[in-house]
C-alpha cells in the first residue's frame, strides 16, 4: 500500500472561524519522498494550501513545520523518518501566531534575533586587507554561524512559548554567542550587559528541545551555557 494519509492544519482567517484538520490521501508510489514533495503534491490537488518553501535543500530555513509532533524542515525530512503507521500530521510551528495554514507570523522570532545585535562590532580602524584570524579562533564559530533562522528550535522551547517577548530563545542566543565567540568582535562587554537580566538568557532551563530538533545539528543549549559562563565570570 503506498497511499499516505496526510492530515493538515488548515486555517484561512477570511473564511474560517476556527482552525481545523483536513485529511488528504497522497499516492507516494512506494517512494520515500521528502515531506515537502508530499505537500507539493497536495498543493496540486488543492491550490489553496499555504506554506513557505524556497531552496528545497535545507539551507534557506523557510519550511519549518511541525511533523507528527516534531519540528523540522519539510524539504530534508523523508516521510519514513516521521510517519507513524502511514499517517503524517502537519501543523504550523507551535507558539507563533498562525497567518494561514502552515504559515506562521515569525516577527516575534526575528525581533529577538535583532535584539542581540547580530552583526560584527569592532571599534578599531579597518585594515587595508582582511582582519586576521587564526584557524583556531575561526573554529570557535563552527556550530554557530550555520544557523538558518528556521525557528524550529525556538518554537519547540516552552520558555519561548511563555515569554517570546522577553526570552531571546535558542536561535537568538546561538547567534549572540556566535558574536561573543568571534575574536574580531570587540563589543563583548556591551553584549553581555544587555543579556544580564532574568529573562533574556536565564529562562533557558536546559531541556534541550532545541538540540533535539535543529535540522542543522547545532547545539544552542551548549552556546547558552557558554554565555552563562561568560556572564558569571564577568560579574564575579
Amino acid at each position: 500500500m503506498s497511499t499516505l494519509q496526510v492530515s493538515i492544519y488548515r486555517y484561512n482567517p477570511e473564511t474560517d472561524d476556527a482552525p481545523y484538520m483536513q485529511e488528504f490521501q497522497v499516492d507516494t508510489q512506494g517512494r520515500d519522498l521528502m515531506v515537502l514533495n508530499v505537500i507539493q503534491m497536495i498543493k496540486e490537488q488543492d491550490s489553496t494550501l499555504a506554506y513557505r518553501r524556497s531552496c528545497r535543500e535545507g539551507v534557506c530555513g523557510s519550511d519549518g513545520v511541525n511533523m507528527n509532533g516534531k519540528n523540522g524542515l519539510t524539504c530534508v525530512t523523508p516521510i519514513s523518518e516521521v510517519t507513524k503507521g502511514n499517517k503524517l500530521v502537519l501543523r504550523p510551528l507551535p507558539g507563533l501566531p498562525v497567518v494561514r495554514d502552515l504559515v506562521v507570523d515569525m516577527s516575534m522570532f526575528y525581533k529577538q534575533y535583532e535584539r542581540i545585535q547580530p552583526y560584527l562590532q569592532n571599534d578599531a580602524a579597518e585594515p587595508a586587507i582582511e582582519r586576521l584570524q587564526s584557524p583556531e579562533d575561526r573554529d570557535k564559530l563552527d556550530g554557530l554561524y550555520e544557523c538558518i533562522l528556521c525557528a524550529c528550535c525556538s518554537t519547540s522551547c516552552p520558555s519561548f512559548w511563555w515569554n517570546p517577548d522577553k526570552f531571546v530563545g535558542p536561535a537568538g542566543l546561538l547567534q549572540a554567542y556566535r558574536f561573543l565567540a568571534d575574536s574580531r568582535d570587540t563589543a563583548t562587554k556591551e553584549r553581555l550587559s544587555s543579556l544580564d537580566d532574568p529573562f533574556s538568557v536565564f529562562r533557558c532551563r536546559g531541556i534541550m528541545n532545541c538540540v533535539n530538533v535543529c535540522p542543522k545539528g547545532l547545539n544552542p543549549t551548549r552556546a547558552i551555557g557558554k554565555i552563562r559562563e561568560m556572564l558569571l565570570s564577568n560579574a564575579t
Partner: peptide, 18 residues
Amino acid sequence: MVTNITNLGRSGVSDWLI
C-alpha cells in the same frame, strides 16, 4: 535587556547564582 523589579537579585546572573 529586560528590566524587572520584583525578582530577588535584580539580575539574571545573581538570581541564577543564588
